[in-house]
């Protein structure tokens, strides 16, 4: 009886693995490595790679630059409505991407909430490369901010107090104590946000459109190439599988790495001697 149960469990595990991995494997089986490389060298794939890297990088700088202090604020300040605010920040995490797309249009399009003001400034965002950056940042930021708030919250308050007692300014305490101690979590959040941003499709196609070399990111290129040159679509898909795998592996390796570096940083941090 127990044996039968074990077999059933193993069968379920095998089924789950096959279900999750076979489709990805099929991508690599469908075309030969030579064809895959040739397809990746096509204009459509290279243009999409460039658009994805460029918009992803700009969005990521924005997410880290604004998200880190915002998360530190949310994690360390105590005020009414803080919990509600954190929940709202997390909302885009569970929001369908198409909703993000229509919401961004509702705000930024010429008929949108800010449309008249932006128009007066001569700024038109929809269907531009800036729109890709906004869409990517919108869907990716919560992944980072959520993780960053959690990481800052786990920093031992006595270390913060010690730093302040020893005469370090709040800013110096943030840079030399809170930030290094949270590095693991921030790195993980950053990687997750990057992965989500790279995969962004729904909000981008609605808000930024699809134009090769301008707004057509890698996921959009898969969609556009499917009926033009399926090999290119498959090749981009295979590339994104490898990118995702890299992100995942670095997440797994990250904790052991940062535990070492952050520990060594803290040893010198509160003394302010360096």
């Amino acid at each position: 009886m127990r044996r039968a149960f074990d077999i059933a469990l193993a069968a379920a595990a095998g089924l789950a693995l096959a279900f999750l991995l076979l489709p990805l494997l099929a991508l690599f089986v469908r075309i030969s490595p030579d064809e895959l490389l040739a397809a990746l060298a096509s204009d459509a794939a290279l243009d999409a790679l460039w658009v994805s890297l460029k918009t992803g990088l700009v969005a990521h700088v924005f997410v880290l630059g604004v998200g880190t202090p915002a998360a530190y604020f949310l994690a360390t300040k105590r005020f009414r409505g803080r919990g509600a605010l954190i929940t709202l920040v997390e909302l885009p995490l569970v929001l369908p991407p198409a909703v993000a797309g229509i919401a961004l249009l509702a705000l930024f399009s010429r008929r949108g909430l800010l449309g008249a003001e932006l128009d007066a400034l001569g700024v038109q965002l929809p269907l531009t490369q800036a729109a890709v950056v906004i869409a990517v940042a919108f869907v990716a930021a919560p992944f980072y901010v959520r993780q960053a708030v959690a990481s800052f919250e786990t920093v031992d308050p006595t270390l913060i107090d010690a730093s302040r007692t020893l005469g370090a300014s709040p800013a110096r305490t943030f840079w030399r104590v809170a930030l290094p101690l949270s590095a693991t979590g921030l790195g993980a959040g950053s990687a997750l946000a990057w992965a989500r941003g790279t995969g962004e499709f729904g909000a981008t196609i609605m808000f930024a459109g699809s134009l090769q070399g301008v707004t057509q990111t890698l996921p959009l290129a898969i969609y556009a190439q499917l009926d033009i040159d399926p090999d290119v679509a498959v090749a981009i898909g295979a590339l994104l599988v490898l990118v995702s795998l890299t992100v995942l592996l670095s997440l797994k390796l990250l904790p052991s790495w940062t535990r070492f570096t952050s520990a060594s940083l803290i040893r010198s941090a509160p003394s302010g001697s360096s």
Binding site: L127, L211, A224
Partner: peptide
């Protein structure tokens, strides 16, 4: 030249 999006 003024095309900003090619829709599916």
């Amino acid at each position: 030249e003024n095309v900003v999006s090619n829709e599916e």
